[in-house]
Design a protein around this nucleic acid. Structure first.
Ligand SMILES: [Zn+2]
Ligand SMILES: [Zn+2]
Ligand SMILES: [Zn+2]
Ligand SMILES: [Zn+2]
Lengths: 130, 130
DNA sequence: TATCATAATGTTATAATATAACGTTTGTTA
DNA sequence: TAACAAACGTTATATTATAACATTATGATA
């Protein structure tokens, strides 16, 4: 089981910053933001990020190498993620759409591969930018 | 228009290597493979990769920072890509599924954003690895 | 053909992202 | 408390990607 609760000190610090942010954060930008708290090395950030992803507290936006807090308390183990990404501003929005998620989770490729997880990224212009 | 045909020398060299490869290739691994051909700098690789992506000849696997040749001659301008990725070996397979593609291309997020493009990555264990 | 614009090239340098490796500390539980 | 696992701190380094600038093809047009 995912032992949902206890975050370590560094994990909590990193999560707080990501949750407060308006958009996706990059690892080194997180790092610069926590140096006052005594965290000095990339490893400390990346380790926290890894654990937070494992716990489903945050997600990585692969096309941006950046991290966002999970909005849909559902994905405790994030095995079905979808995002809407504005190509102009940096806006990223997590999509929680039961139908979409069900459709993709039950999608089966002919080649005999059983999927455990997917990540979907949509790109376009957000309301503001178009 | 995409002016499908003429590839420059460097673009052709990079494309050849990616097409011959069994799996996804990383930029620097491409670089090491073409130094005998007089290409010495990352820029030359990245520039070719950028153009080839624009033309839809190759795709970037975002979760791996690696590149594969396009299999489905359809996606000349790659605005609807889907891949099946084995978490154990490095296998990546491009999924060409008209229904899936149609379903996602017509998917509309409530938030008033019109999507121009999507990228979907499925993860699991391939036939060999499971 | 001369001229102009565009795309591609070559090169050096550097930025940005991520992991290896090692020893120490802290927290859990048998 | 002893033993183990998880988290931490730290230094170094690997990997991925872009900036900047000068040069050279390529292709269209006057
Ligand atoms: Zn989520
Ligand atoms: Zn926007
Ligand atoms: Zn393709
Ligand atoms: Zn495999």
């Amino acid at each position: 089981m995912a032992q949902a609760q206890t975050l370590s000190r560094n994990q909590q610090i990193v999560l707080n910053i990501i949750e407060k942010a308006k958009g996706p954060l990059k690892a080194y930008s997180i790092l610069f933001n926590v140096q006052k708290k005594g965290i000095n090395a990339p490893q400390q950030i990346y380790r926290a990020l890894d654990k937070l992803i494992e716990m489903g507290k945050i997600h990585k936006i692969e096309s941006k190498n950046a991290f966002v807090a999970c909005k849909s308390s559902d994905c405790e183990i994030s095995k079905a993620t979808a995002f809407s990404i504005c190509e102009s501003c940096e806006m990223v929005d997590e999509i929680s759409d039961a139908k979409l998620s069900k459709y993709l989770s039950s999608f089966n490729h002919r080649k005999g591969m059983k999927f455990k997880r997917f990540n979907l990224e949509f790109f376009g212009l957000c309301k503001k930018c178009k």
